[in-house]
Write a protein that binds this DNA or RNA. Structure first.
Lengths: 338, 338
DNA sequence: CTGTTAGCGCCTTCAT
DNA sequence: ATGAAGGCGCTAACAG
């Protein structure tokens, strides 16, 4: 009909009421007589009216956007969590804005503008380190929820997977298969999630009474390449493990690649486990046995937490740890008899 | 300092000028005396002022957000394009909003609200089919640019890769290795990109004078599973190809998996090519030889095109086809002598 | 139950 | 070169 989008005034005119009534009919319907409510509804349908979000945000001093900040959008863990986040946000009338920092504090700071300019109401953080320079660290942060791991600076609620428990399940699997000489390929980057996975590994080893002497720990940086490298380093030593427990799937994939390149068969010669259950894990040869992060759920819970924060509801819990599941595929078998 | 974010008025007061001057100092600096410009700059620095985007959008009737609509955020092709889009958008003061339709027209329609509510200025479409119900098809669309493939309804500029050329390069590679009996595993879903890849394959076959009789064409749906399935179907026939040219990497991975499961060696027994150069392709065993889409570039160009549209600049071209590159890995070799 | 009205912060004529 | 003032569309008192 009209050229420019309908405003609340158009609706009011057609419904023959005031704009205040239209606004109320939308947001506080119970305070409006049923008959007028109907007239308004009709007028809205007629005009195809959608409230102008900018005017609304301006008036309310509050945006309906959530900023999702991740160091790397391409991270295979990222997208399915994003789906969970987005679904939940949309269900509550929020939109999702994305930003990737590429681990660059400068870029992180720029995203802060979304808040000072009122374009976002809250933030989901995909990293344990605040992606801002130190000068801004002191400034009051917008309502924020961490994902995967607690945010370093503390005080920020987060939802993730129980890394300790998951890692423990992984070692236990290996131990149950008969492995005694297990190498943990870790991630030297200072992230609590990784530290916890290593602790879970140690805990399992302890519980099985496996002596310190037969443990091997190597640190990479969580990339496929570093997994490959770890294999190379290990082959320089005289004592090899029978199993590799890796801090994440990327590392595990690297280990598998390195092992295969040397002509070894998995799981006949070596067993390998990962952590995350990245899509790729299922399509390795053999399939990678790993620990699944319930990504959709993580996203959903994180957004729910943030929404609670935004509505001033005291969040029920400030840390949500989801239960990790073992995904058994074919990269684990009994150790080779020497 | 102050509790609520600084407004233009705070800046004006400190700089001892009117708010109009502040506004001009920001947007039309050349119309402001250098001395006052400096005073304003100083006041801005002092207050940490950031213009309220909502007020600005309201006043201007224009948002500074771009909506990116994709059927599936988890698509391995998606994220690196998103990075390209986001970088370019940010460089021009735009933010990127994401939406995924999951091929559900209903959800697509809901994203249209971002425009009627003035929350987004333009749209990037990751699908060849308008993700809206037919009733809305007639409504005027916001400035839109398609990615990957032309949007079905026509009239929408797009940027993608030259599928025809890429597919042709792939067959030529196969033919150069000596293959004569090549199966094309396509995608039955009605998407121009896929049709073009098939046409490119045919063209290469034609040019090499390979008779119709020795060609095999099978259609799947672009998933790993459908690649596997294609192998099964082919083994029911009495004549097998020596090479599989797949419409995309997912399909190729499925084919490789199916072949390997049957105990065949790639590339000794069969050669396989893909299309896209999905991250996973590099880590297959053997590495998948495929055609690379320059994803970062695609994103960048698409956003540039959209930005031109938004600034009423007549776009230089309405269709940008980027050159695809062959990525040679180890899934292609000479055909086995029978 | 409904209408009137005052801004939210900003940009932009129109004066000066 | 600068200032005054209207209004973008909306919501939330405040009156009736």
């Amino acid at each position: 009909m009209s050229n420019s989008p309908a405003t609340i005034e158009d609706v009011a005119r057609i419904a023959e009421v005031s704009i205040a009534t239209v606004s109320r009919a939308i947001h506080l319907p119970e305070k409006v007589a049923v008959s007028t409510r109907l007239k308004v509804a009709h007028a809205i349908a007629l005009t195809g009216y959608t409230p102008n979000a900018n005017a609304r945000s301006l008036r309310l001093g509050k945006s309906n956007m959530i900023l999702v900040v991740a160091p790397d959008i391409g991270d295979p863990n990222f997208s399915s969590i994003l789906v969970g986040l987005e679904n939940e946000a949309r269900a509550h009338g929020y939109g999702v804005l994305i930003g990737h920092t590429q681990n660059d504090a400068q870029r992180g700071v720029e995203y802060l503008k979304f808040f000072s300019s009122n374009q976002a109401a809250g933030m989901i953080l995909f990293t344990g380190i605040l992606p801002f320079g130190h000068q801004t660290m002191t400034a009051r942060l917008p309502p924020t929820v961490g994902v995967f791991e607690p945010v370093f600076n503390g005080g920020i609620p987060y939802v993730g997977v129980d890394d300790l428990e998951g890692a423990r399940k992984a070692v236990e699997l290996l131990i149950a298969e008969g492995h005694r000489r297990i190498a943990f390929i870790g991630d030297a980057r200072n992230r609590l999630a990784y530290v916890r996975r290593r602790m879970g590994c140690e805990a399992g080893l302890d519980a099985a009474g496996i002596p310190e002497a037969s443990r091997i720990v190597l640190d990479g940086d969580g990339t496929i390449e570093s997994g490959r490298l770890a294999v190379d380093q290990l082959f320089l030593r005289d004592t090899l493990p029978t199993a590799f427990m890796c801090v994440n799937d990327q590392t595990a994939i690297g280990v598998m690649l390195g092992l295969t390149a040397r002509g070894y068969d998995i799981p006949r010669d070596f067993s390998v486990t990962g952590f995350d259950d990245v899509p790729q894990a299922a399509f390795m040869q053999p399939g990678l046995t790993t620990i699944r992060q319930p990504r959709g759920l993580i996203g959903k819970h994180a957004m729910q937490l943030l929404l609670q924060l935004l509505s001033d509801t005291e969040p029920a819990q400030t840390e949500i740890l989801l239960r990790p599941d073992v995904v058994v595929r074919n990269s684990v078998g009994p150790p080779r008899r020497l």
